[in-house]
Amino acid sequence: MTTVVHAIAGYFFMLLVLRVLARRPGSQMTPSDFVLVFLIGGVVLLATMENDRSETNAVLTVITVGICHRIVSHLKQRFPRVGALIDGTPLVLLKDGKWQTEAMGKAHVTDDDVMAAARSKGAKTLSQVKYAILERNGGISIIKNNG
């Protein structure tokens, strides 16, 4: 009983915390971002498992989290609004050579981050970049100018 309730609460708590934290590029996560991820996971983990180290408890917790995840992904699939709420929407950071400063400020993305993404796509200068888009997972997509 408590296990299942704790697992559900833990799942949605983590979802909320990581949603309101700044979106950081999944593939470009810095070590401190990783530490944070493990820290959050570990703390919630300890609270969920309490003093019950039985196999039953572990199986039930994992299954509960799995079911939560499945329900959430199902809702995302059915209702695009839910998807936007949970995953956010892509944000345009750079458009036709102009920084979209509001989006960049709110999303805590610096022009260095965009430059790094542009370099990884083989663009030498920003003038070669037509669009830079902050994806929902935190990655930055670069679309180059043709030619």
Partner: peptide, 19 residues
Amino acid sequence: MTPFELVLIFFIGGCTLTA
């Protein structure tokens, strides 16, 4: 993978680990 999904993986692994 979003950071949340990363946490989730760690979480699931950790639960199994405890037992």
